Simulated assay, not measured.
Amino acid sequence: MVTSKFREREVGSSLAHPEALGDSNAPVHGTVIAKAARTAILQGFVGSLLMVAGSIGVGWLASSSALIRTPIFIMARTSPVGVILCTVMLCLGALLLLRSWLRIAQRIGGWNPSSRPVLRRALWMWALPMMFSLPLFSRDAYAYIGQGRLMEQGLNPYTNGISALSNYFSLGPDKLWTEAPTPYGPLWLWIEQGAVWVSASVPELALIPFRLAALAGVILLAVYVPRLAALHGVNPDRALWLGVLNPVLLINFIASAHNDSLMLGLVVAGLYFASVKRPVLGIVLITASIAIKPITLIALPFAGLLWAGARAGWAAECSVGRPPWVCP
């Protein structure tokens, strides 16, 4: 039994530090990596579930919601024991998710292609529970609903704040957005309007399209962050772990239901296609990102530079017979 435990420790140490095997480039079988990372993935899944449970008491909920009058929500949001318990579950879940994220990197060790299925499995298991939580750490989703109602009533969100709606406070938006015009592009406004229309103005149902949009953004990031990293000499699996599986990103994008997820997913996909000499598709994707949040307009010049390539410049232009007054 002592020998068996010693061997288990030796295997675990070798996974965390592949150089201990005598060859730092030696591939580790995917099944071995999956087994080593299984505990970390399950712990992260439990952490995500704890955050969902905690959101019952401390997640944002519109005052017009029918859920606020159900017994479990009344107990979780009004009794001291319920509020404290939900707060503890939320904090514990976030800490457990963070620990699992760090732990999975230790278990994977070598960042070879065998680790990517493990990272993707962790991504799904950690992200999907958050799809069912109440909005956490942000009320922006309720501002989306308010702006969607403005669109549905024929009001211009670029000149009217949510306060132009009757009984707007019951929608649950942050007061920061009640007087301010929308900062979002037309594509996102259409998504907001569609969400309000399909939900028949029920706040909880209106959150579903925003969560699906956030999930779509995370999927785009999971696909194109590794590809873009590989094009530029960065380990794609490490980029996936650091840039997409990161709990801060998952919580901010999915649990908070932010439109930044879809915005960023589209712009990263656009930059990738610009890098592989498919500029039209890249520009279309970046333009769609701009139509969600205009701030990504800054990505268009970089898409042009990526399209031109690393060797582009005045010397390259002059080599194809440009006039001397253009190329000194």
Rank of each mutant, 00 (worst) to 15 (best):
P301H: 08
D23Y: 13
L97S: 12
L189E: 10
I283C: 02
S63T: 14
V83M: 08
W177M: 14
L134D: 01
N112K: 09
V244D: 04
W188C: 08
P135D: 01
A105T: 09
W190L: 15
V326G: 10
G233V: 13
P27V: 11
A143S: 12
I283Y: 09
G47F: 00
E192K: 11
A316H: 09
L90I: 13
S170P: 10
L250K: 04
L98C: 04
T159W: 09
V326H: 15
G172N: 03
M130W: 01
P129W: 00
E179S: 11
M75S: 05
R7Q: 06
G282I: 07
N25P: 15
G109C: 02
T287Y: 12
P186D: 11
M1F: 02
M89V: 02
M89T: 00
S100L: 04
F169W: 15
M125V: 10
G148E: 01
G30L: 13
G161I: 06
R139M: 00
L262K: 02
Y224R: 05
V248S: 13
I208W: 03
L205R: 13
S79H: 09
V320P: 12
T87N: 05
R69P: 14
Q153C: 12
A239V: 08
E192C: 15
D260F: 02
K5D: 00
M130G: 02
T3I: 07
G282N: 02
L21D: 15
V52I: 07
L96T: 08
L305H: 14
F137P: 01
L97P: 02
A312W: 08
G82P: 00
A315T: 14
P27N: 12
K277N: 07
I56R: 05
T78P: 13
M1S: 06
I191D: 04
G265L: 02
L134A: 00
F253C: 10
C327D: 03
A312L: 12
Q43G: 04
H29Y: 14
I254W: 00
T287C: 09
L128P: 04
M263T: 01
E10Y: 09
L281D: 05
A315L: 13
T78R: 12
Q106M: 07
A127M: 12
A143Q: 06
P18Y: 11
L128S: 11
I292M: 08
R278E: 06
T159L: 14
A62D: 08
I145A: 01
F302G: 02
A36H: 02
